[in-house]
Design a binder for these strands. Structure first.
Length: 928
DNA sequence: GACCTGCTGCGGTCTG
C-alpha cells in the first residue's frame, strides 16, 4: 500500500479488495503527484485509469478544488459510459461529483451540470470542442481545470481528431491562463517521445514517461483454407472456436458472410458486430459476451479497442489484420487479465495471407510497431480558428497563431502559410479581418446551418461543425420504428427494391418500403428466402510497411516458423518459395522486381512500401490514359504494382526521369486521382468553399492543401524517387519472367485503380471537337465501354457548363450524333449534315412542349419551320426559363397517332437547330 | 471491393 495515500482512499482500496496498487499504478504515482506531465504506457487491463485518477483524488480531497478540476477525455462514447461509472465509484464516496458528456447522454443529465457542476468531467474531443465554442454558460467552469487526462492517446495521435484535440488543449490553456497538468494513457507505441510531444504541447511542466513493457508472449496458430472458399472458412472456424471467441475480419461484408455460412452449418449463439449495426443491437451482443452467453462474435475493428467485453477465451483473425498494432490490439482482447497469455489464431485464405501472418508474428515478437505520423492538416486549424471566434467573438491574429503553434503538430506552421489560410477564409466569407483583429464572417452560418429545412447538398448541419469525422450518406433500416442498421445510399439506389431481402446483423429482413426523403428503409423479419448482403464501400485499408518489412526478413533469412503453421499453411508457403527456386528466379523484394506480362497488364512484383507502389501506379495510370487509352487500370499493394494498356514498359521510362520531372508528373497524376477529389470534397466546407466549382487559381490554397494531405496519406514522393534512382543505378534488379508467378498473383488480386472521370470528360471534349459522332464511334475512338460512355454523355449534357455538348438525329442514317455546342453552327452548315436540318415542308405547323430543367415550369410553342429559319433568335425569346430539361416535338396534323419526338437537356444556344432537326426528321419518317 | 470514431446550449413555453 502506498504510504502517501490518504486514509480515505486506503479504506476504499480495502472495500474494493485491492491488497496493493498494480505495478503501473505504483510507478506513476510519484510523477503524477509531483505535478509532472505524465505519459503512461501499458497494455489494456492493467488499471491505467486508476493509475491516473487515484493520485489526483489524493490531492483533491485535501485541497478545496473547484469544479471542473479534472477533465477526462476519451475517444469513444461507450468508454465514457464505462469510465464515468468506474470513476464515480470512488468519487461519490469521496464527496466529488462526476459528470459525463457525449451526444447520447439524455438532455436531463446534461442539464444537471449547470446546477451541480462536476469536479470530474468525462467527455470526447468533440465534447470539449462544443463546450469551448458554444457552451456560453458552462464554459466558465473550465477556468478551474487543473488536470487533463487523455485516454487511448494512441488512437488519436494519427488523425485529424487528434490534432483537433491538441489545438483544443492549447485553447484551453489560453482560456484558463494556467499550465494545467497533462496525463496521457496509451497502449504500446513505438515512438513514445513523439506521443509525449503531441500530448504535452506547449506545457512547461517536467515530463515523465512511465512504461510497463507489455509481455510479448502470445500463443498463435496460422491455418490455411482453400482459396476463396467461404464454406471451408466456416468449417475451419467451427473447429477453432473455443467459447467465447472473438472472430475479427477486415470487412463488414465478411462478418455477415461468415455468419451466414456458420448458420448453415447449424452453429448457434454466434453474433455479428460492426459499425453499420445499430447501437441497440451492438449493446445486446456486447452484453451476450459479458454474460458469457455466446459461442463467438464475428466483428470488425469495432471490438478492437474500448469497453470491457468479458473474458475472451480465444481470438480468431479471419485473414491477417492490416498492421502490427492492430494485430496486437486484436490479440490482446483475449487473456485480458494481467497474468493471462493471449491466445490467437489467424485463418489464411491465400498463400500471401500466410506470408503476412508470419510477418506480423515476427514483427510483434520483436516489439516492432508502426510509428505514428502526427496529422497537421490545415482544415483542422481553420475549424479551430472559427471555434475560437465563436467563443471569443474576436481574436488577435498573433494570439491565435501562438495558440496553434503551441500544439506540436503545428509547431512548424509558418506565418506565411497561416496568413494564406486567413486570406482564403476571408475570401470565402468565413472571416472578417479588421487590421490584426479577426471576427466571424457573414458566411459562417450559411455553411453550418441550424435549420435542416434550408439545408442544401453542400451546407452542413451545425452539429457537424464540432466534428472532423467525415461520413458518406446512408439509409437506415427500420423495423417497427427501431433502427436495425445502415446501408450506403449509393447501394440502395443501385440495388435495393421493395420486397428484396437483405442480410444484416446476421438476420434476414424484407424491404417493405423505401423512403427516399427520410433516407430510410422499412423492413420486417423474413425467414424463408435467401438474403443479399449489402456491400459497404469504404476506403482501401492499406497494409502497413511493417508487414512488407517482416516479409522481407522472413524471405531473406528463410526464417519460416514452422511451429505456428498448420500443415496446409506450411505447404502453401513452401510451394510459394519453391516456385521461385525451381524456376530459378529471385524472390521479389525491395531489391528485386520480377516483371511478367498478363494479357495487356504489366505486372511488377516486389515487396515494398504500399505508398511507393501507389505513387508509381498512379503515374503509370496517368501516362497511359493520357497517351494511349482510357481503357486502362493500375494496381498497387505491398506486393508491387501493375499497369494495363500501355504498349511499352513504363518503368524503363520512369527510371530515367530526373527529380523535377518526377515531381511534376506525380502532381499531375495525383490531381486526377479519386483520392485527391475525395480529400478536396472533405476539406472544402472547412474553408467555406461551397458548391462543386473549384477554380484552380481562385481556390489555390484549398487545392494545395488537399494535394498536400493526399500526398502525405497515400503517396511517397521521396520513397519513389529513391526507389527509381536505385533502379537506375542498378541497385534494384529487374528480372523478366515469361509465366505467372505467385507474388504476381498477389499483385493482381488487388482492386484496380481506374482513371478518374475528369479524364473522360476532357477526352470526350477533345474527341468531339469539330465533328459529329455516334456514341459507338466515340467509344471506339476513346477505348471505353459503350455503356459508361453513354452514361457520361447524358450527364455531360445536363451539367455542362465548361463542356457543353448536344446531340441531334442524323436523318440519313437515323442515328443520334453528338456534337459540341460551340461547333453546332458549323455542323449544320456542313455538307455532311446539311440535310438533317432542312425540312421539306416549311409551312407545316408543329408543337414544341418544353419543360424547365427543375421541372417547375412548362410551356407550349406552336411554330412553323419557316419562322425559325427567318428569325432563329425569336424562338429563344419565347422560352421563359434558362435551362431546358425536356423538349417534345409533335406534328400538329398527325397529333392523334404520332408519338412525340423527345430530347433531353437541350441547350438554349442550339434550340433553333434542334427544332429544325426534329421537324426534318418527322417529315422524313412521314414521307418514307 | 475496402476499418473505426462523433455530432448545439440555454432559457422559455406548453402539456398533463
Amino acid at each position: 500500500m502506498h504510504q502517501n495515500l490518504d486514509s480515505r482512499i486506503q479504506t476504499l482500496l480495502k472495500q474494493k479488495n485491492w491488497p496493493t496498487l498494480t505495478k503501473i499504478q505504483e510507478m506513476s504515482f510519484p510523477s503524477i503527484s509531483n505535478g509532472n506531465n505524465t505519459l503512461i504506457i501499458a497494455p489494456t487491463g492493467y488499471g491505467k485509469t486508476e493509475a491516473a485518477v487515484l493520485p489526483l483524488f489524493n490531492q483533491m480531497i485535501n485541497e478545496d478544488v473547484k469544479p471542473v478540476a479534472v477533465l477526462y477525455i476519451t475517444p469513444l462514447k461507450a468508454l465514457i459510459n464505462d469510465l464515468s461509472l468506474r470513476i464515480d465509484w470512488w468519487a461519490s464516496k469521496l464527496g466529488l461529483i462526476v459528470n459525463r458528456k457525449h451526444g447520447e447522454v439524455p438532455q436531463k443529465e446534461k442539464n444537471l451540470r449547470l446546477k451541480h457542476a462536476p469536479h470530474i468531467l468525462v467527455t470526447t474531443p468533440e465534447g470539449l470542442e462544443i463546450d469551448l465554442d458554444w457552451a456560453s454558460k458552462f464554459r466558465d467552469f473550465y477556468k478551474n481545470v487543473r488536470w487533463v487526462i487523455i485516454d487511448e492517446v494512441h488512437e488519436l495521435i494519427n488523425s485529424k481528431r487528434g490534432s483537433q484535440l491538441a489545438i483544443l488543449l492549447e485553447r484551453l490553456k489560453y482560456f484558463t491562463g494556467r499550465d494545467f497538468q497533462r496525463i496521457g494513457l496509451s497502449a504500446t507505441v513505438s515512438n513514445e517521445n513523439l506521443v509525449a510531444d503531441f500530448l504535452f504541447g506547449s506545457s512547461d511542466r517536467k515530463r515523465s514517461i512511465i512504461k510497463l513493457e507489455g509481455k510479448r508472449d502470445f500463443q498463435i496458430k496460422v491455418k490455411k483454407i482453400d482459396n476463396g472458399s467461404w464454406e471451408d472458412a466456416a468449417s475451419s472456424l467451427i473447429s477453432s472456436i473455443e467459447p467465447p471467441s472473438l472472430i475479427f475480419t477486415n470487412s463488414r461484408f465478411s462478418t455477415e458472410r461468415l455468419h451466414e455460412e456458420l448458420e448453415k452449418l447449424g452453429q448457434k449463439d454466434v453474433f455479428v458486430h460492426h459499425s453499420s449495426i445499430s447501437r441497440d443491437l451492438k449493446d445486446m451482443v456486447e452484453e451476450k459476451l459479458r454474460k458469457n452467453q455466446s459461442n463467438a462474435v464475428i466483428c470488425t475493428k469495432t471490438l478492437e479497442l474500448g469497453i470491457h467485453i468479458g473474458e475472451i477465451k480465444k481470438v480468431i483473425m479471419f485473414r491477417p489484420p492490416p498492421s502490427v498494432s492492430s494485430f496486437l490490439q486484436r490479440l490482446g482482447r483475449s487473456g485480458h487479465s494481467v497474468s493471462g497469455t493471449p491466445n490467437g489464431e489467424i485463418i489464411s485464405m491465400f498463400d500471401f495471407d500466410v506470408l503476412e501472418s508470419l510477418a506480423l508474428c515476427e514483427m510483434a515478437k520483436k516489439g516492432k510497431v508502426e510509428k505514428p505520423i502526427v496529422d497537421n492538416s490545415l482544415d483542422v486549424v481553420a475549424r479551430e480558428l472559427l471555434g475560437h471566434l465563436l467563443q471569443n467573438q474576436e481574436t488577435k491574429l498573433e494570439d491565435f497563431y501562438k495558440i496553434v503553434t503551441g500544439a506540436r503538430a503545428f509547431s512548424n506552421l509558418g506565418i506565411k502559410t497561416f496568413m494564406r489560410m486567413i486570406d482564403c477564409l476571408e475570401a470565402n466569407g468565413l472571416l472578417k479581418k479588421e487590421g490584426d483583429v479577426l471576427k466571424l464572417g457573414p458566411n459562417f452560418f450559411r455553411v453550418w446551418r441550424f435549420n435542416r429545412e434550408y439545408k442544401t447538398i453542400w451546407c452542413k448541419d451545425f452539429s457537424e461543425f464540432f466534428s472532423l469525422i467525415n461520413n458518406n450518406d446512408t439509409f437506415s433500416l427500420r423495423f417497427e420504428g427501431k433502427v436495425i442498421g445502415e446501408i450506403d445510399a449509393v447501394y440502395v439506389y443501385k440495388h435495393i427494391r421493395v420486397n428484396d431481402v437483405i442480410r444484416i446483423s446476421g438476420k434476414l429482413w424484407k424491404v417493405t418500403r423505401i423512403n427516399v426523403n427520410k433516407m430510410s428503409l422499412d423492413v420486417v423479419p423474413e425467414n424463408s428466402r435467401k438474403g443479399e448482403i449489402p456491400i459497404w464501400r469504404g476506403e482501401n485499408i492499406s497494409k502497413s510497411y511493417m508487414i512488407a518489412k517482416g516479409e522481407s526478413i522472413i524471405l531473406k533469412e528463410g526464417k519460416i516458423d514452422k511451429k505456428i503453421l498448420d500443415d496446409k499453411a506450411y505447404s502453401s508457403i513452401k510451394e510459394l518459395t519453391d516456385f521461385y527456386k525451381e524456376k530459378e528466379i529471385p524472390f521479389p523484394s525491395n531489391s528485386t522486381i520480377v516483371l511478367e506480362k498478363r494479357d495487356e497488364e504489366w505486372v511488377y512484383s516486389a515487396i515494398i512500401d504500399e505508398r511507393i507502389s501507389n505513387t508509381i501506379a498512379h503515374i503509370m495510370l496517368y501516362l497511359t490514359s493520357k497517351r494511349y487509352t482510357l481503357s486502362t487500370y493500375a494496381r498497387a499493394s505491398i506486393y508491387g504494382f501493375s499497369i494495363k494498356g500501355s504498349p511499352i514498359d513504363l518503368l524503363q521510362e520512369l527510371k530515367d526521369y530526373d527529380e523535377e520531372k518526377m515531381k511534376a508528373v506525380i502532381k499531375k497524376a495525383i490531381l486526377r486521382s479519386s483520392l485527391f477529389i475525395a480529400t478536396l470534397k472533405e476539406i472544402q466546407p472547412s474553408f467555406g468553399r461551397l458548391g462543386r466549382k473549384i477554380d484552380p487559381e481562385r481556390d489555390k490554397f484549398i487545392v494545395n492543401e488537399a494535394l498536400r494531405q493526399t500526398l502525405r496519406k497515400y503517396f511517397s514522393v521521396k520513397g519513389t524517387i529513391s526507389f527509381l534512382k536505385s533502379i537506375r543505378e542498378e541497385k534494384i534488379s529487374i528480372v523478366t519472367y515469361g509465366g505467372e508467378t505467385p507474388i504476381g498473383d498477389a499483385v493482381v488480386s488487388h482492386v484496380p485503380i481506374r482513371p478518374w472521370l475528369i479524364d473522360i470528360v476532357e477526352s470526350i471534349y477533345e474527341a468531339l471537337k469539330g465533328g459529329a459522332y455516334t456514341s459507338s464511334e466515340l467509344a471506339e475512338v476513346l477505348g471505353i465501354p459503350l455503356k459508361s460512355l453513354e452514361n457520361k454523355l447524358k450527364q455531360l449534357k445536363k451539367m455542362s457548363d465548361k463542356y457543353k455538348i448536344s446531340s441531334f438525329i442524323d436523318v440519313d442514317s437515323k442515328e443520334v450524333r453528338w456534337v459540341l455546342v460551340d461547333d453546332f453552327q458549323n455542323i449544320v452548315n456542313s455538307d455532311d449534315y446539311f440535310t438533317s436540318f432542312t425540312p421539306s415542308n416549311l409551312e407545316e405547323t408543329f408543337i414544341a412542349l418544353l419543360k424547365s430543367a427543375d421541372r417547375e415550369s412548362q410551356i407550349e410553342l406552336i411554330f412553323k419551320p419557316k419562322d425559325i429559319i427567318q428569325n432563329p433568335e425569336d424562338i429563344k425569346r419565347r422560352i421563359p426559363f434558362e435551362d431546358i430539361g425536356e423538349l417534345r416535338v409533335i406534328d400538329m396534323n398527325e397529333m392523334s397517332y404520332s408519338t412525340p419526338l423527345k430530347f433531353y437537356g437541350v441547350s438554349r444556344q442550339v434550340i433553333a437547330y434542334i427544332l429544325l432537326n426534329a421537324t426534318t426528321y418527322i417529315q422524313s419518317v412521314k414521307f418514307s
